[in-house]
Structures are given as structure tokens and as C-alpha cells.
């Protein structure tokens, strides 16, 4: 299923490509406290997080933050630099990005918990070299409204004239392509293997199996 660029349609099923415009957010080590400040974590559902993404950075930039620029308002592909999403494990961060409209992220590298949280929502985080990121940023800067395509099966990001190689581990790629990124069902299917493991763990049987 091709992803629709509709902000209220969240990822579902097999994710093969994401088509839309790109938003550039430059900078290394952008942490999840910045993506969604802690005060917005006081909620029992994720619904209102989209409006609050980068709340403090946006206030500081007073309208000029990439998430406030009108040319970016329909963007679905986020382009970042290194170690994006470091810090707190809050899934509120990818939830906020997703609810704002982001459906794929391309960057030099991602913090692991953030990467896993995105995958669990069906949002691919794909990596590429610093030079490719610079080239992509430049293309976007020169022509903000062009249509881009992130092709997960072939590991590419492309616009009408050029394409760049992007990377994702084959296991994660397969999970996205096959629609198996929602892990609960997969884990449940291995019920018996789990019980076998549990029977072997000393701390689950009061260490009786240890002589």
C-alpha cells in the first residue's frame, strides 16, 4: 500500500514507499526533549502531540522554525543529521512527528531507542552519508516544493532528476515491506518457544534447577 500524504492517516500494513515533500531540520544530537518537551508528556493518550512537536524550539525561532515555515506544512519526509532522537525513550517523540505529518526520516544516524520507536509506528528511519545528506538538503533548499520518493524496497531516496542510496538493516526493511513492523502478533506466535525459555530460567523457578 502506498502511503497517503494525509496527516490523519497513520501507517498501516506493508510500507514500500513514501511520497511527498521534504523538510530539512539541520543539526546533530537533536534530543527527544527538544522534539517533545517533558511537560507535554502529561497525557494519557498521544492525540494532541502533533501540534506540540518542537514546541520550545519553535517559540525560540518565532515562526522561522522549519516546522513553522509554510513551504514545509505538507512535508512527510524529514531530513536530519547525526544522532537524531537521542536521550529520553519517550515514544511521544515519534508520535508527535507522525501526528504532525512525518512518515519517513532520512539522516546520518539515529539513536537506537528512537529508531525502534519509529519502526513500531511504521515510520522508516533510513541512513545515508554526510555528503548525500548535504546534497539532498541543497536540492530541497533550491526547490522546496518538489516531490520526493523514499523507496524502501530499493533503498533509495529520489526526486525527479536524481537519486541517492539510503540504508536500513535488511531485517527492519523486511518488517516494513511485509507489514510486520507491528511486533505484538509476531511475538505472540512464538508462545511455545517462550514457555520453553521460561522453564529454563533459574529465577523463575526459585533457582530449583541449580544444584
Amino acid at each position: 500500500m502506498e502511503q497517503q500524504n494525509l496527516k490523519d492517516t497513520f501507517p498501516k500494513g506493508c510500507i514500500e514507499k513514501i511520497t511527498g515533500s521534504c523538510l530539512v531540520l539541520p543539526g546533530d544530537d537533536i534530543d527527544t526533549d527538544r522534539i517533545i518537551p517533558a511537560r507535554f508528556l502529561k497525557c494519557i493518550n498521544f492525540e494532541s502531540l502533533g501540534e506540540q512537536v518542537f514546541a520550545d524550539d519553535r517559540i525560540e525561532k518565532n515562526g522561522s522554525h522549519p516546522f513553522d515555515q509554510t513551504t514545509n506544512k505538507d512535508a512527510s519526509i524529514l531530513v536530519v543529521n547525526e544522532n537524531f532522537g537521542c536521550g529520553s525513550s519517550r515514544e511521544h517523540a515519534p508520535q508527535a512527528l507522525m501526528r504532525w505529518g512525518i512518515r519517513a526520516i532520512i539522516g546520518q544516524s539515529f539513536a537506537e531507542i528512537f529508531f525502534g520507536n519509529c519502526l513500531a509506528l511504521g515510520i522508516p528511519c533510513m541512513t545515508t552519508s554526510a555528503s548525500s545528506i548535504r546534497a539532498i538538503q541543497k536540492e530541497i533548499h533550491n526547490q522546496p516544493n518538489q516531490v520526493w520518493k523514499v523507496d524502501i524496497a530499493n533503498c533509495l531516496i529520489k526526486n525527479i532528476s536524481r537519486e541517492w542510496k539510503v540504508n536500513i538493516e535488511t531485517g527492519f526493511q523486511e518488517m516494513l515491506l511485509k507489514g510486520q513492523w507491528d511486533t505484538t502478533a509476531q511475538l505472540l506466535s512464538k508462545k511455545n518457544e517462550l514457555i520453553t525459555t521460561m522453564n529454563k530460567l533459574p529465577y523463575l523457578n526459585n533457582f530449583k534447577s541449580m544444584s
Binding site: E91, A120, L187, K190
Partner: peptide, 21 residues
């Protein structure tokens, strides 16, 4: 020991297990 996101909290509640690389 490691931190997880909320979707993984759901997985652990449901299955007492996780996917991990």
C-alpha cells in the same frame, strides 16, 4: 537492562517478551 518505547511496553505487557537485535 535497557529502556523501551511505549509500543514495546505494550508488547511486554502482552507477551513478556520483546524483539531485539
Amino acid at each position: 537492562a535497557f529502556g523501551i518505547g511505549t509500543s514495546q511496553v505494550r508488547d511486554v505487557l502482552a507477551t513478556q517478551s520483546l524483539t531485539m537485535n
